[in-house]
Amino acid sequence: MTIQPYLFFEGRAEEAAAFYQKVFGAKIEMLMRYKDSPDPCPEGMVPPGSEGKVMHMSLKIGDGVVMGSDGRCSGKPDFQGFALSYAARDAEEADRVFAALSDGGAVQMPLGKTFFSPRFGMAADRFGVSWMVIVPA
C-alpha cells in the first residue's frame, strides 16, 4: 500500500513544480493540462480561460512522489493541518533546502539543533505548504 500527498495549488501548480525542481531537483514524471483531458471537464469545474492549467502532475522528490494540480483554479490554496517532511543528507543540505523553502514563505520554527536531530526546522513555502526539514540522527 502506498499513500501519496496530493496538493491543490489553485492555479499555481506549474510554478510550484518549477520551484520544487529548483529546491529539491524534483523530476516531473507526469503533467496533464485540462485541455489535454480525453474527457471534457464537467461544466463549471474550472473557470473559463483555465484550460491550460494543470489537471494532474506527479513529482518525484528523492524517493517520494508528490502529486498535485491546479484544482479549481480559485487562486486561494489552503494547506492546513499537515506538513511534508524532508530528510536531508547532512546539515549543509538542510541549511540550503530550508533557506530555499522559506524564501518568500514563512519560518514556523527556525532550523537548529534539537534533542532528536542535529538540524530540524519548519517553514511554509511561498505556496503555503508547510515543510519539516530534518537531518536524521
Rank of each mutant, 00 (worst) to 15 (best):
G25N: 03
L31N: 12
H56V: 07
L59C: 02
K60G: 15
H56R: 02
D36I: 00
C41A: 13
L59Q: 04
G44E: 02
Y34K: 11
F24K: 10
M55N: 04
G25M: 04
V46A: 04
K53C: 10
L59D: 06
C41F: 12
S58M: 14
S37V: 02
M57L: 13
H56N: 07
E51T: 02
C41G: 10
Y34V: 13
Q21S: 05
E29G: 03
P40V: 06
K60E: 15
G52A: 12
V23S: 04
V54R: 05
L31M: 14
Y20V: 01
K35G: 08
S58G: 09
P48A: 08
S50E: 08
K35T: 07
P47C: 15
S50N: 09
G52F: 02
Y34I: 13
E29Y: 00
G44L: 06
F19W: 07
F24C: 06
K27N: 15
V23I: 05
K35V: 11
M45K: 07
S50W: 03
G25I: 02
K53I: 06
M32C: 12
F24E: 07
V54E: 06
K35N: 10
C41Q: 12
F24N: 10
P47G: 08
P38G: 12
E43D: 10
V46W: 00
M45L: 14
C41M: 15
S50Y: 06
D39V: 15
S37Y: 03
E29P: 02
G49F: 07
P42R: 03
G44Y: 09
D39I: 11
P42S: 01
G52M: 07
M30K: 02
K53A: 13
Y34R: 13
M32A: 15
M30T: 11
Y20G: 03
Y20P: 01
G25E: 04
G25L: 03
F24S: 05
K22F: 07
G49C: 06
H56F: 06
L59E: 00
H56E: 01
L31W: 04
L31C: 14
K27D: 15
K60F: 08
V54I: 14
E43N: 03
Y34A: 14
R33G: 11
P47A: 13
V54A: 07
A26W: 08
L59S: 06
S50H: 09
R33Y: 10
S58R: 10
I28E: 15
M57C: 13
E29V: 07
K22I: 06
